[in-house]
Design a protein around this nucleic acid. Structure first.
Lengths: 170, 170
DNA sequence: AAATGTTATCTTGAATTCAAGCTAAATGCG
DNA sequence: CGCATTTAGCTTGAATTCAAGATAACATTT
């Protein structure tokens, strides 16, 4: 058995760099490369369930954000795009699409005439209520491929890394 | 508004779900949410260095893939887009851009007239040679925020997860 | 050799995103 | 009050991506 058949795609990249640039210590690529690849593959796996409910990932995310905010399931666009790490222009587009599909409604804000609040419609509420159940079940299924102890360990280490990366910490 | 309590952005999401949907065990969101967020933040951090060399992330990735393949730094488009997880249409566009910038050249394939191979130009080679050094240094700097043992542990757990997620394994 | 199927690549059109800049409303300050 | 500044949201244009399908070359079978 050769080395390259044992490891994953990232191992193969590390081997190539070791051969071509032995002067560089490319070991951080192991962690960062795998993390990126895991994220991409997970995204794909989650999309499968979203599509079963006629949702894209960002549509699920929008409805879920409004849903978990609690009654009356209403937030300002600014709050939405700042928590979701997208620009205001992206949010304008998303709101138009969701309103067109009847999952949200827009309401004037009594405190601030500049702001038109966003609220889950009954249809949007009913949809996300079912979709989030399937989504959570999907996540459980995906992680069941690993022993519970590995999941817990990974979870702890990622929390550490996230703390080190969060914008306010540097 | 963000600094406040103990816990990160993902903890706040978990708390909201626990309040709104106590019937669901949303614990997998802890791992999957943090992983996604780490990936997004890391992407941003890596971009900083890419931009210093006039590169976008995908441009760096393309040049790096050709570079680490070894002399004569030449690959077929199919090999490129399959290892990089993008479609053939995306690859066509990328090749046009890189060719326009003079970092790659295209050459007919003697074995297969359908294929026009892609090769690093001298300029492309010189650029990626410097950029990869800065990139690796950047990755070292980012991970230096964590103790070496944490990095090693995280790396091992991610390799486990990646093995469970790789397409051929399910 | 002709027919059939497969492979490599490109084209097209739509979706999604961001950066930059715009308008309107709220707020602060003299 | 009157003017400057900030904030909320939207508009525009460009970049990036993919899905679907077109094209051309290769491979296999008849």
């Amino acid at each position: 058995m050769t080395k390259s058949e044992n490891g994953d795609a990232v191992d193969r990249i590390l081997e190539q760099w070791a051969r071509e640039r032995p002067d560089l210590d490319v070991s951080p690529m192991g962690l960062i490369g795998r993390l990126g690849r895991c994220a991409a593959l997970l995204e794909h796996r989650l999309d499968v369930v979203f599509q079963q409910y006629g949702l894209s990932a960002w549509e699920f995310d929008m409805l879920a954000t409004l849903r978990r905010a609690g009654a009356p399931y209403r937030l300002a666009p600014t709050e939405l795009f700042s928590t979701m790490m997208v620009t205001s222009g992206t949010m304008t587009h998303r709101l138009k699409v969701l309103e067109g599909k009847g999952w949200i409604v827009r309401e004037a804000c009594s405190q601030d005439a500049r702001s038109t609040l966003v609220r889950l419609s009954d249809a949007g509420f009913a949809l996300i209520e079912r979709a989030v159940e399937a989504h959570v079940a999907n996540e459980h299924a995906i992680l069941s491929a690993l022993p519970a102890r590995s999941v817990e360990a990974l979870q702890k280490r990622l929390a550490e890394l996230l703390a080190a990366l969060e914008p306010e910490n540097h």
